[in-house]
Nucleic acid binder design. Structure first.
Length: 514
RNA sequence: GGCGCUAUGGUGUAACUGGUUAACACGUCGCCCUCUCAAGGCGAAGAGUUCGGGUUCGAGCCCCGAUAGCGCUACCA
C-alpha cells in the first residue's frame, strides 16, 4: 500500500505567508478577507506578508485589474512586505514573468516521470468526461497519452501536436483504496484523499502557461512560504499540491483552510447575490477599518471577553465586536476559528461602519466625505455632464442627486415603456445585467453591448436606454446615460441594477401573495 | 453521481480539560428621550444546540449512524 503521508514539515526562521489574487476583474472582498488573515498571521509572528499576482490565465485576464487590486488592497491598509509594486528578494512577483521558471521545473517533472505530455484535444477530453459522468464515474483524465512510450511521444512531438503536461498521480496497483495522500490541515486535522479521486491535473497548458497548481507550488517553495492560508475551496486540490511538493522533494508548508464567506442563502459569496467588489465598498463609503473589523468577525478568531471579565472590567458589551487591526494582531487566535461558513451580513457591516463614522471627529468625518462622495475627481467628472443643462449652479443637485444616493427606487410607471408589460421590462432588465458585466466600462463598450442586446430582443434604443436610465437615476430625464454610468462606476452601477431587480422581485412576490 | 468539509436563535460568535434557567453583538418588536429621523437609555420576543441512538450521575461539548448545507469535480483561480 502506497501511503503518501505529508505530516513532516520542516520549519525554520520567521513565517512567510502570501495572498495570490488573480487579475480577472474587480478586487474581491474574499481577497481582503484572506489577506487580512494572512496579514495578521504574519504580524503576530514577526513574519513577512507577500503579494503575488497569479496572472496565468490569459483568457480571463483583465488589463485594468492588477492596478485595481493594488489600489483596493492599499485602501484596506493591509500593507505587504513584498510584491510586484514594492519589490523584494524573491521576485518577480508576477507569475506571467516567471514562465521560464515553471518550464524549467516542469521539465524536471517530465524527466523524473512525475509528469507526462498529454496530446488529447479539448474536445476529446470533453467527450470522455461526459461519458464518465453518464456512467456515474468520477470524471478523470484517462487518455492514452498517459501510457505513451517514448517513441509515441517523439512521433507526436515531431508532428508538432499541441500538448499539455499533466501530473502523474500514482495509482495503487491493487486498485481503489491502495494509494492515497494524507495531509494535515491545521484547523481540521488530517484529511485523506484516495488517489482514485485525484485527477491527473494539467500542470502546463498548451499555451505554455502553467496552471495555478504548478505555479502556486513552485512559487510558494521558491518564495519560502511557510504557511499557506487560503480559502476552503482549495482543500480538494491540496493532494495534488502535496504530490507536487513530494515529486520535487520539497518540504511542505502548513495548510490553513479558511471557511468561505457566504451569501445569505449560504452559497459561496458571489456578485449576483452580494456586492463583492472592494471598489464598491470604497465608493459606497465604507471605511476600510470598519470593513476589516467586520471581516475579522467572520469565522470567529477574536476571543470574546468572558462574562466575568465584562463585569469585573466594566466593559461595554456594545463595543465587544469593535476592534482595530492592531488589536487583531494582539488577540486574534487562529486555533479559535470556527469552520462553518459565515454569512457576510451587510446589515451588520453597515451598523459597524456607522459606529466607525460616529467615532470620527467632525473634521475627520468631513474629510472622509470629501475623499469619497465629494472628491474633486468625482465632482470634476460629473461637472461636464451638467454644465449645459443647468441655468444656475444651484440646480446642480436637482440633476445629479442619483450620483450621491445609495439607492433609488423608481416606480413602475416610470420604468416600464408604454408598449411593454412589467414582466417584459423586468426580463429585459435581467438580460441587461450580463451585458453590463461584460462591458469594459467605457461609453463605447457599454453602448455596443446594449445595442446588440436591444437589437436581438427587438427593443428600441429609446426603450432600452430609457429603462436603464430610470434604473440608474430614478428619473426619466438625466445627464447623458452612458457617461453617467461610467462616472458612477461599474461596481456601483451593477449593484444598482441588481438591487433594482431584487426590489421588483420582492414587490412581485408580495403582490402575488395578496 | 463521486470525493471532501461543515452543522449553536434570522445573522456573526460565546459557553474553561462534559457540571445550574445556553451568553454577547447585529437585526426585529415595545417603551422612554425628542420638532422629525438617527443616536442614546430601558425592556421583550426569538435557539434547548440538524436529527436518531449510545457512553455518563450528568452531553452543545465524547462515540456511532443518518440528514442537510456548502465546496471541488476545467488546458479558471
Amino acid at each position: 500500500m502506497i501511503q503518501e503521508t505529508a505530516a513532516n514539515t520542516k520549519q525554520a526562521g520567521p513565517v512567510r505567508v502570501r495572498i495570490a489574487p488573480s487579475p480577472t476583474g474587480d478586487p474581491h472582498v474574499g481577497t481582503a478577507y484572506i489577506g487580512l488573515l494572512n496579514y495578521v498571521f504574519a504580524k503576530q509572528r514577526g513574519g513577512r506578508f507577500v503579494l503575488r499576482i497569479e496572472d496565468t490565465d490569459r483568457s480571463r485576464f483583465v488589463a485594468s485589474s492588477e492596478q485595481m487590486i493594488f489600489d483596493a488592497l492599499h485602501w484596506t491598509g493591509l500593507e505587504w512586505d513584498e510584491g510586484p509594486d514594492v519589490g523584494g528578494p524573491h521576485g518577480p512577483y508576477r507569475q506571467s514573468e516567471r514562465t521560464e521558471i515553471y518550464r524549467e521545473y516542469c521539465d524536471k517533472l517530465l524527466e523524473s516521470g512525475h509528469a507526462y505530455r498529454a496530446f488529447e484535444t479539448a474536445e476529446e477530453l470533453d467527450a470522455e468526461r461526459k461519458a464518465q459522468m453518464g456512467a456515474k464515474q468520477p470524471p478523470k483524465y484517462n487518455g492514452p497519452s498517459r501510457r505513451y512510450t517514448q517513441e509515441q511521444v517523439d512521433t507526436a512531438l515531431a508532428g508538432s501536436k499541441p500538448y499539455t503536461i499533466r501530473l502523474r498521480v500514482p495509482q495503487g496497483d491493487a486498485g481503489v483504496g491502495t494509494a492515497s495522500t494524507t495531509f494535515r490541515d491545521e484547523l481540521r486535522g488530517d484529511i485523506t484523499f484516495d488517489h482514485f479521486n485525484v485527477d491527473d491535473q494539467v500542470l502546463m497548458k498548451s499555451d505554455g502557461f502553467p496552471t495555478y497548481h504548478l505555479a502556486n507550488v513552485v512559487d510558494d517553495h521558491l518564495m519560502g512560504i511557510t504557511d499557506v492560508i487560503r480559502a476552503e475551496e482549495w482543500i480538494s486540490s491540496t493532494p495534488k499540491h502535496v504530490l507536487l511538493y513530494q515529486a520535487f522533494g520539497w518540504d511542505l508548508p502548513r495548510f490553513w483552510h479558511m471557511p468561505l464567506l457566504r451569501n445569505i442563502d449560504k452559497s459561496k459569496i458571489s456578485k449576483r447575490k452580494n456586492p463583492v467588489s472592494l471598489v464598491y465598498y470604497r465608493q459606497a463609503g465604507f471605511l476600510p477599518q470598519a470593513l476589516l473589523n467586520f471581516l475579522g468577525l467572520m469565522g470567529g478568531g477574536m476571543a470574546q471577553p468572558t462574562e466575568q471579565e465584562i463585569v469585573s472590567k466594566g466593559l461595554d458589551t456594545r463595543l465587544i465586536d469593535i476592534f482595530s487591526l492592531m488589536e487583531m494582531v494582539e488577540r486574534f487566535d487562529f486555533k479559535r476559528i470556527s469552520l462553518g461558513g459565515p454569512v457576510f451580513d451587510l446589515v451588520k457591516l453597515k451598523w459597524m461602519n456607522s459606529e466607525y463614522l460616529r467615532a470620527l471627529d467632525a473634521e475627520a468625518f468631513f474629510q472622509a466625505m470629501r475623499a469619497t462622495v465629494f472628491s474633486d475627481a468625482y465632482l470634476r467628472a460629473i461637472a461636464p455632464l451638467v454644465q449645459t443643462r443647468i441655468e444656475t449652479l444651484g440646480q446642480f443637485g436637482d440633476l445629479t442627486d442619483f450620483f450621491f444616493k445609495d439607492d433609488v427606487m423608481p416606480a413602475p410607471e416610470l420604468f416600464v415603456p408604454k408598449k411593454r408589460t412589467l414582466e417584459e421590462t423586468l426580463l429585459f432588465a435581467t438580460e441587461m445585467l450580463p451585458v453590463l458585466e461584460a462591458a469594459d466600462w467605457t461609453p463605447t463598450s457599454i453602448d455596443a453591448g446594449l445595442r446588440e442586446l436591444l437589437t436581438a430582443k427587438e427593443w428600441s434604443v429609446k426603450e432600452a436606454f430609457g429603462l436603464l436610465r430610470v434604473i440608474l437615476t430614478g428619473k426619466t430625464a438625466s445627464p447623458p446615460l452612458l457617461e453617467s454610468l461610467v462616472v458612477f462606476g461599474k461596481a456601483r452601477s451593477l449593484n444598482r441594477v441588481r438591487r433594482f431587480l431584487e426590489q421588483q422581485k420582492r414587490f412581485q412576490a408580495s403582490a402575488n401573495r395578496k
